[in-house]
Amino acid sequence: MSDDALELSGDDRLVLGDLLNHVLDKGIVISGDITISVADIDLIRVGLGIYITAIQSELDHAAAQERATPDAHVPVLHHPRGL
């Protein structure tokens, strides 16, 4: 198989995008008081627009945490060939 056939693991930006997509835009809504949903706007786009400048510092922070605690719970980006 070509090495290009799969995106390699470690693309932290996409993992962070996935995190924001899941947490901000999905999950059950039981309250009428949710405050971040704006007229059904796609929140991942809103969220990424808002947070794009924060991503690098967050990634730096996460990398530092991972160095300190190898089992830190940053979501794993699986490479199908790598596990």
């Binding site: 947490v23 999905k26 999950g27 809504v29 039981i30 309250s31 008081d33 949710i34 971040i36 949903s37």
Partner: peptide, 10 residues
């Protein structure tokens, strides 16, 4: 769990 969406405050 059934995860809740971020930001739900009662």
């Amino acid at each position: 769990p059934v995860p809740a969406r971020f930001g739900q405050v009662l």
